Amino acid sequence: MKNNLLLILLLITSTVVFGQQNDKVTGVVVNASNGEVLESVNIVNLNQVVGTATNSEGKFQITAKANDTLHFSYLGFKSIKVRVTNDWLKFGSSKIELTELALALEEVVVNQLKLTGYLVVDIKQVPIINNNYRYSISGLPSTGYEADSPGAITKIVGSIFNPADFLHRMFGKKPNEMRKLKKMKEDDEIRNLLATRFDREMLTVLLQVERVDLDEIISRCNYSKGFIQTANDLQILDAISECYEEYKVLNRNKKY
């Protein structure tokens, strides 16, 4: 009887230990064309919203469970999604291959200014520089909304009541995406990865929106074109979150 109890105890202990050891997957990422390891590949678990990157040996480890989807992205290579399987969790490391993209330089046209000596004519050739402004909104702890010019203040006042409505229309039927938005802000590794990116790819994949919709969200929140074009992915993430939180402050009686 004692032997049976001991056996059952060992089985339970083994099961617990096995479960604890298999909440992470490991692997190595290589160049599909030559087998060379790739360092600093961005890896994100789209289900649990946690991220990591490969080390100098191309190796990585990330929290995951069966059927989670991992997103691999690296500059100059085609991004891929990989499903976590029970076999991967059970048997250990896996090799992930990324395929290089063909890079093509876009043609750049430089227009040289041809000055005539007449101020009225020449001044029209000087490109207009957009100055971005941030407006403080009474009652809000933040710096307010950004716009292209002082004249845009009327647009801000008129449209401040719709940004979260737009966000809700985008994510209202996808509450998981709004929860992901909060998780992304809390995960230091995700924030570090986003701070180095400007392509919006990781944001669109995590939030399950198209690039055009992502730009529309920022535009509706009254951020300038200059900000949208130059901000890194982390700044875009914070802008979306700030816009949503500010709107909720002004509309405490509404539930989103």
Rank of each mutant, 00 (worst) to 15 (best):
L193S: 06
L194V: 01
F166N: 09
V157E: 05
T196E: 15
D187N: 08
V209R: 00
D188L: 13
E186N: 10
V212P: 11
T196W: 09
A164P: 13
G158R: 05
A164C: 14
R191C: 07
A195M: 08
E201S: 11
I190K: 00
S159M: 14
G158E: 07
L167W: 11
V205P: 00
F161K: 13
T204A: 04
V205D: 03
P175I: 02
G158A: 07
L206I: 07
F198N: 10
L194I: 02
M170G: 02
E186L: 12
D165M: 14
V209Q: 00
L194H: 02
E201Y: 10
M170N: 05
M202F: 09
F161D: 14
H168N: 15
E189G: 04
Q208S: 10
D165R: 13
M170Q: 08
K173C: 06
D188I: 12
K174H: 10
R191A: 08
G172Y: 05
K183E: 07
E210L: 10
E186K: 09
L181H: 03
V157A: 07
R197N: 08
K182T: 11
K183W: 04
D165A: 15
D165E: 14
K180F: 02
V205G: 00
H168F: 15
G158M: 06
H168S: 15
H168Y: 15
F161G: 14
V209P: 02
D165N: 15
K174Y: 03
K183M: 07
K174S: 10
P163R: 01
Q208Y: 03
M170V: 11
N162R: 11
R179H: 11
R191G: 03
G172S: 04
K182I: 10
L193D: 05
L194S: 04
K183P: 02
H168M: 15
